[in-house]
Design a protein around this nucleic acid. Structure first.
Lengths: 123, 123
DNA sequence: CGCACATATGTAGATATATGCATATGTGGT
DNA sequence: ACCACATATGCATATATCTACATATGTGCG
């Protein structure tokens, strides 16, 4: 008989779901933005120059995949990167964030987004 | 005017392609196996209990994505993890390999596969 | 050359994924 | 209650992805 599937106890399916969530360019760029701080949908929308439904759906999918969490603040819904319980997932997301967070230009872009939209910018 | 896309110079599209390659469970399990050493298609096929075309295609896609390299040895074609030039990609693949390589049961499974199939097992 | 074996590829069909457009929901303020 | 704004969702459509089955290619051997 042969060894058969398994790949042991490793969280293959959990990692697979994570990678699937990160595989889309729009969603990966959202993670890049969120590496610099929480944002609401309108920030993502204008930061990535995508339609509002696209931004909303991408964030919803990331939330379903456990990559982000959301928080409601009046009319706005803020999204932030979620803490990862699974060690392997945590390693990968941290690696991503480290890379993205080191990008100063991205940081300025995020700061500009927050400054020109959302609650802080409006009143 | 608004900030617009970009996400700066970060290799978003390159990372996106990497994650797309790793998003499939079959392919991710192949990477897990290869973390323990090079294998040929028949090893993967019986190790994951998938059909020969499925194993071959999965490996071909991983090769196209730059995740693995291949080497022909007579009738057999050996696949191994490829070195990554891009730092971000290298970090992620190394993180994966570290996790998978630490799994002793997986290591034994791979050893068994190599022992019972392929050139070394046949003659 | 012809056979046996390992691997690759063509094709088709089922299923998932992404996006645009319209519209619904939710919230705060007048 | 109504309106304005931010966000979410329904629906249709285009496109990508995966798998199965059959078949082709390549390599070694007698």
């Amino acid at each position: 008989m042969h060894a058969q599937s398994s790949a042991s106890v490793l969280p293959v399916s959990s990692l697979s779901r994570l990678f699937k969530a990160l595989a889309d360019e729009t969603r990966l760029r959202i993670v890049a933005l969120l590496a610099h701080g929480e944002l609401c949908v309108c920030h993502v929308q204008s930061g990535l120059a995508v339609s509002q439904p696209t931004a909303s759906r991408a964030l919803a999918l990331l939330r379903a995949a456990g990559v982000v969490e959301d928080r409601r603040a009046g009319t706005w819904v803020y999204y932030r990167l979620a803490a990862q319980a699974e060690p392997a997932r945590r390693r990968h997301l941290q690696a991503l964030v480290r890379g993205f967070a080191g990008d100063a230009a991205l940081g300025r872009e995020v700061a500009a987004l927050v400054a020109q939209k959302g609650p802080r910018a409006c009143k």
